[in-house]
Design a protein around this nucleic acid. Structure first.
Length: 473
RNA sequence: GGCGACGUGGCGGAGAGGCUACGCAGCGGCCUGCAAAGCCGUGUACACCGGUUCGAAUCCGGUCGUCGCCUCCA
């Protein structure tokens, strides 16, 4: 088996992936907060870690991929209020939309997709463990509502619980920053109840305008953002997870806090390797809902097709920023078309042994910090070589299928769609016209066929029908 | 202000001390009634200024610029 190397944010370098348990790899990636439809930027980690799983499986490892859904969160409350629907309803609706939107990409589903709302017992127990070990504390005063809108806030005695950041000597080791260097911004919600401005919330006492809450030893409330991931990840994968991933914007504070919680409560690291993908940029900056430069995933898939979207996402190295533009997606579409055309010229079956080095180059590239652009380059080289041999007529598609499958693009080699009878009739009429050298009539029929979504290519072996854009049915 | 990335040919985007990916677009050719698809050929790029070296786009220092994080964020 190849040695697989990945960039670990904590170590700050590319290092060999050594499975916690031989032959098995657990991956936990942070998924979306479901308060609206996801955008292209949210899709990047989904695709990166899904494809990483496929690659590791190809290398003979048993992989468990977990991508969580944050369905309890301030933004959800805010969005639900604005929409005039219960927050749980909005969250459920957007979770379903997220599943549909990512399903459309065709790269597979994670093995587990835990919801924060369904992990409450474990979250509460986790917080209790942190309190018991003195790494967390219950706020001295009941929350009185940050907005002061309702004097009854917290009257039931519900309290916030905070994590004592300075109690973790390892704090900052993931994001490589020192506590002293941090802006200790004031004015953050709940700051007056914290012992230290650095501390972050594990449990938030229920506010009057929040329509969901869960019971706890500290009163009704809900979990903070970071604790849910520690709890969900541990519940499904344990600690010292092989790979913990997400967008690079999560390194601090989200992942730093997760790591601190796990060290404090369990005495071990949450993850052995932290893998972060770069941001997608639009209009020169990070694509984000708060910036307003987002491209909803569903729209992009609708417009360019799922294969082109996946191709676009792997056209750059996962750790680098990736620019979003119409042109970039169109290029990805052209690349997809090129591969599909190549597949058309291949027979089904074993590939020439002489092409194995190119296939190996593909997998070696992925083993080297998941270098998809280099891997794509190997595919192109393979295609060129395969096509060069007897016009490609003798080459089988096995290698190409194997490579594309890891990228979630094997559908590009799907058998061509059969044309309906009326289309074939038009082709026959056109052949007739061509036989009479009535090219005006022939060209007219070709235009008609194009209207119906079929291209005709006149080859030595007769006309070939090609469905236009089968990726966008 | 602190921490960290990055500046590559028209565009996207790898790589990396000497062997100068790959794709898209363009151009020329073959094929074709014309197309389409394909094939062949074609572009000597690495922000700037110094330094190290026989040799640097690749290492070191500086300059300029862009981006990310430090606050919710994939």
């Amino acid at each position: 088996m190849r040695e697989i190397r990945l960039h670990d944010t904590a170590a700050g370098k590319v290092a060999p992936l050594v499975a916690r348990e031989p032959g098995r790899i657990g991956i936990y990636a942070c998924g979306p907060t479901v308060y609206s439809r996801i955008h292209l930027g949210n899709a990047r980690p989904y695709v990166v870690f899904s494809l990483m799983k496929r690659f590791l499986e190809h290398e003979g490892l048993a992989v468990t991929l977990v991508i969580n859904v944050t369905d309890v969160n301030d933004k959800i409350y805010t969005a639900a209020r604005a929409a005039g629907v219960p927050s749980a309803e909005l969250a459920a609706e957007m979770t379903a939309a997220y599943v549909a939107d990512t399903d459309a990409l065709g790269v597979g589903r994670p093995d587990h997709e835990p919801l924060a709302s369904e992990t409450m017992d474990a979250i509460v127990a986790y917080i209790q463990a942190l309190i018991d070990s003195d790494h967390a504390y219950v706020a001295a005063h009941a929350s009185n509502g940050a907005n002061g809108a309702d004097g009854a806030d917290g009257a039931d005695g519900a309290r916030d619980v905070f994590f004592r950041v300075r109690s973790d000597p390892g704090y900052g080791s993931l994001s490589h920053r020192h506590i002293e260097d941090m802006d200790q911004g004031e004015g953050v919600e709940g700051s007056e109840r914290k012992e230290d401005p650095l501390d972050f919330a594990l449990w938030k006492a229920r506010k009057a305008d929040e329509d969901t809450c869960w019971p706890s030893p500290w009163g009704d409330g809900r979990p903070g953002w970071h604790i849910e991931c520690s709890a969900m990840a541990e519940g499904l994968l344990g600690t010292e997870i092989d790979i913990h991933g997400g967008g690079s914007d999560l390194v601090f504070p989200h992942h730093e806090n997760e790591a601190a919680q796990t060290r404090a409560a369990r005495g071990s690291e949450l993850a052995r390797a932290w893998v972060h993908n770069g941001m997608i940029q639009a209009t020169g900056e990070k694509m984000a809902k708060s910036v307003g430069n987002i491209a909803p995933l569903a729209d992009v898939v609708e417009r360019y097709g799922p294969s082109a979207v996946v191709m676009y996402l792997i056209s750059g190295h996962y750790r680098q920023p990736l620019s979003y533009s119409q042109k970039a997606l169109e290029q990805a579409q052209a690349n997809v078309t090129r591969i599909r055309e190549a597949g058309r010229r291949l027979s089904r079956g074993p590939s020439p042994v002489a092409l194995e080095p190119l296939r190996d180059r593909f997998f070696d590239a992925l083993a080297d910090d998941f270098n998809t652009p280099e891997a794509l380059s190997a595919i192109n080289a393979w295609i060129r070589a395969a096509a060069g041999a007897d016009n490609g007529l003798e080459a089988g598609d096995e290698h190409l299928r194997e490579m594309l499958d890891v990228l979630g693009l094997a559908q590009l080699l799907a058998a061509p769609v059969q044309a309906p009878p009326e289309v074939n009739e038009l082709v026959a009429k056109r052949e007739d016209a061509r036989g009479r050298r009535d090219f005006a009539a022939a060209d007219g029929l070709r235009a008609q066929l194009a209207q119906l979504g079929w291209d005709v290519r006149d080859g030595a072996a007769g006309p070939e029908l090609v469905a236009r854009d089968p990726d966008r049915a």
